[in-house]
Design a protein around this nucleic acid. Structure first.
Lengths: 238, 238, 238, 238
DNA sequence: TGTTAAGCGAGACGGTACGTCTCGTCTTGTT
DNA sequence: AACAAGACGAGACGTACCGTCTCGCTTAACA
């Protein structure tokens, strides 16, 4: 199971690797995995023999290079050279540059983006969205994310993986949070939670990808202001 | 002036071409342009001698190829071959594949997207946004737009040109329209018109580019519903 | 005809190129060739547009590199770099490193090896074989020839081309010469001319390829001595 | 001494292995060898622990693969896989593919080629050369020998080993035999025995390596006919 | 009405990067 | 410690396109 190719073409499930390295060698999980060994194709590499040092060097080199020369011009060849690694070591574990970039992003992300429930939806949304804004504008990961989305336009499996690992975990959590706020009467009940997310996150990504204006935290406040009060003329002003 | 390179690197101003072709050959405007010929670099081509048949063939081949094999895999080499044209004829008039795609998009666009003012902002927005949704989801131009935005992530001049020709004309018009609605008291006055556009258009592009869910007209209604009423619990429900 | 692929996979007949360059542009031969243009496949390059400077640079770089680092370690990549040429320019005109080496050898050969008929077979053979010996021992072309024969062991078409262009023209001429000497009564009539060539040339190539002893002109005299007198004990000594 | 690297880079002297296997494990010869162990580098493997089954499998797989796909395309990787052996097991005991092929050839050879002295030089030469011809033309070992000589062009130590193990034992023996025939008056005394061998063996290898014509036993007779009688017109015919 | 200069179709060119292959070494766990 | 297995750094392979260039040809504007 942990060895089989996933939708993205990855030859392993990156999460398993982390678990492996945090566990004792030769433990039960390891032996269990061997029972499924017959399921894998002959060309599938063995994640338990993977060189963690190389993996880290590749991920680091990827983020560095992309932030230096941009996503497009960061070739796999250059990444390998910078990481002091053979090209094949990249191709062995990832199906494309995008997959490497996504894993690099994923690793950096855990610590960056939070999710908290203070009981006040708007405050929490503002806090989260400002963190995301900062991430998207950052010199390091901003270009990685832009490049990832760009590459996703012509690589459905990369787009899918990006959704699964990065986008949906957050959006689904927020949709759930919104539905709870509707149930508790904190906000109106007839709003489509998915549409709310599309609008709030969309506003950020629209600026990021269309380059209309620079992404700024103030934008978040303006957006939440509108989302909360609505455009309709307030009755008391009538 | 019509011959000088613009921000995108175009060797002509596409608009001039249209004007040229609607005018008689050899008229005064033409001759005037030649007076300025000494200002341009020696390699600047003469738009008055351009082969319109080739230009159309290139634009058509570009849209066809992109919709068939995707933006990335539609190489300039393949476009030239499909159009029955030499590569140099493309490089002579456009600086990049993206520039060709943008011009192709621009030509197709005029007829597709409208802008009307019925006096009812929400209705007009809904009408426009549904037209845009249809465009973005279309088999022909959808991939062109996606590819254009993707390419824009690593080509600022393309992104700029896309903004100038396609995005901003619409968004600026809508921002103006919103401000008029605020002035006339149709909607509340304290909403940032730019943020409104970011949210509404962002909601569409977010789905288009992140591939969370297919773009649907119903989504537009849900978004406008939220934008108009807001999330705040209506006082009468309290 | 002159444009079609030959046995070796060459995209042209090298000889034609020479003729082309010695002729006036746009002459009859040129126009005639166009009549046969429909015979060539779409991917066949057009020899009349070939860059002679590049061709010469490639051939020179090939010989240089091979004599410096040996045939095996002279990669096409390194040849291209040394010649200041794109790899594709090599692959466009030759099917393999061996083909380049063979053409380089062929061009150098014309001036090197002679064929003369003084009326005295043994003298002429000695003269020719010593020239060949010198060639095979030379620092420049020796390694090219060794490499060519080595590569020919696993590339039949290269071996074939080597035979056609270099080996057989000489051996067939000598076989014919031997037969004439038999007819004229200069040497005995019952010797198989082909076997004679195999033995004389074989003696040189045997040393070259098996590395038993260095190739030396004296060896030629010893071989011809045996070939002429034979091993049989002369009757007068009995 | 038996453990030290030889010219070829072998980590053992193959002959010792044979001796070892014919002896009881742990006998005196074995223990004696160990006394010299300190002379060898730390990475030198211990031949007494060598797995003979693997060695045989490797040699067999090598000959098989080469005869199936040719020398060039028989990679060490493929040989290891076919032999059911780790790559390191090959690299531990041989310095190159050629060394493996040579040992495989050497083992097969003992039984194939004979050397006899019936007192009639020409007959014995004919017999031996026809056996060699058969060997060189065989589907199994022919390609091995061709490949070995080809590889020898860019690997002097392989060429040297080939000479030492295969070529020179035979040629030296034949040179000696020829000298005896000269001493006994069986053939003329002024022929260079080395040149005779070069011519007779060269005739076979020339055909093998240059691919002028298929190797045939009849060729041997023609060659010996010439070598014996010589080309000179016999006086009695005058 | 012939001259001439630019656009054109075609495609060769010097390059870069691709994704694959094999090399010879290194690492891991088994025998 | 040799072994089977195979990951690793290295780098060449042959291909696909890039953007520039050069070649004849066609096609106007001018002379």
């Amino acid at each position: 199971m942990s060895d089989s190719h996933d939708v993205m073409g990855w030859k392993h499930t990156p999460g398993d690797r982390a678990r492996r390295h945090s566990a004792q060698r030769g433990n039960k999980t390891q032996r269990l995995a061997l029972l499924y060994a017959h399921e894998v194709t002959s060309s599938t590499p063995d994640p338990s023999r993977r060189n963690e040092r190389s993996r880290q060097a590749i991920l680091a080199a990827t983020v560095e290079l992309i932030s230096e020369v941009g996503y497009e011009r960061a070739s796999i060849e250059a990444i390998a050279k910078r990481a002091g690694v053979g090209k094949q070591t990249i191709y062995r574990w990832w199906p494309s540059k995008g997959a490497v970039a996504l894993e690099a992003l994923d690793e950096s992300l855990a610590t960056v983006v939070d999710f908290r429930d203070s009981g006040h939806l708007l405050d929490d949304l503002a806090h989260h969205m400002k963190a995301v804004t900062q991430l998207l504008s950052s010199t390091e990961l901003g270009p990685v994310i832009q490049g990832l989305i760009a590459a996703g336009q012509s690589d459905p499996s990369l787009s899918r993986a990006h959704l699964d690992k990065v986008i949906e975990p957050a959006t689904l959590a927020w949709q759930e949070r919104i539905r709870r706020a509707q149930a508790s009467g904190e906000i109106r009940a007839d709003a489509d939670s998915e549409a709310v997310i599309d609008m709030l996150f969309g506003a950020m990504y629209y600026r990021l990808l269309l380059h209309t204006r620079p992404l700024r935290p103030e934008q978040i406040d303006a957006a939440l202001h509108i989302a909360f009060l609505g455009l309709r003329k307030p009755p008391e002003e009538a």
